[in-house]
């Protein structure tokens, strides 16, 4: 299975999952085939390249950028990206400026725009990030190597409802001549969470 790498020490967990699957399969709730198909489909569709395309388009098309900030679900659909593939969520895009830097967290669990960014990184789900992102975001950003000017206000979005957030980073200086495809290569996954500048 692509995207999945088996480590040591998981034999007991595997046995427990086997037992769960057997119990649920007996009741007609899951099949091994459906599980495999769900994993494969997830790894195929939920990718950060979706997020990179959205940002590159927003950087190169002001009208799209305006639509994206106004109604992200509709704007993203224009690019043929299906947000509803995983769960019906409402997407909000928040834009970084010279004055405001946005950062995303879910302090209560691990809500994340999975369809646009792929599986979330371990640090996003960690107790350390969830606890500290809302109390000392500047110190958290420093651990990611991000230093912001004093005057830049940090705005942290805690994903407490069905809203999912995506950060629109500032377009890097010196990227003027680049087309959308090249712009997309400048964007990073962390930039879309707000733990990187781009």
């Amino acid at each position: 299975m692509s995207g999945v790498h088996d480590h040591h020490g998981s034999a007991e967990m595997t046995r427990r999952v086997d037992a769960l699957v057997a119990r649920l399969a007996h009741r007609g709730l899951v099949t091994d085939a459906a599980i495999a198909e769900t994993i494969e489909s997830f790894l195929t569709h939920a990718k950060p390249s979706n997020g990179f395309r959205i940002v590159a388009r927003a950087w190169s098309d002001d009208a799209f950028r305006a639509r994206l900030l106004d109604d992200a679900n509709a704007a993203v659909a224009e690019l043929g990206i299906d947000l509803s593939h995983w769960a019906p969520v409402t997407l909000r895009v928040v834009e970084n400026t010279a004055d405001v830097h946005n950062m995303i967290v879910c302090t209560l669990c691990s809500c994340y725009p999975i369809a646009l960014l792929g599986p979330s990184p371990a640090w996003y789900k960690s107790a350390e990030y969830r606890a500290r992102a809302v109390s000392e975001p500047r110190a958290v950003l420093a651990e990611f190597g991000v230093e912001l000017p004093e005057r830049t206000r940090i705005r942290v979005w805690d994903s407490t409802s069905e809203m999912r957030y995506l950060v629109l980073p500032r377009r890097p200086a010196g990227s003027d001549g680049l087309d959308e495809q090249r712009l997309a290569t400048l964007v990073t996954r962390n930039g879309l969470i707000g733990t990187a500048l781009v």
């Binding site: 940090i154 942290v156 805690d158 407490t160």
Partner: peptide, 19 residues
């Protein structure tokens, strides 16, 4: 109704969606 509510927490802001 769910509201996006912005709170000022010292040197930064937090926005949460609250019922």
């Amino acid at each position: 109704m769910v509201y996006a509510v912005q709170f000022s927490l010292g040197d930064h802001d937090v926005v949460a969606d609250l019922w």
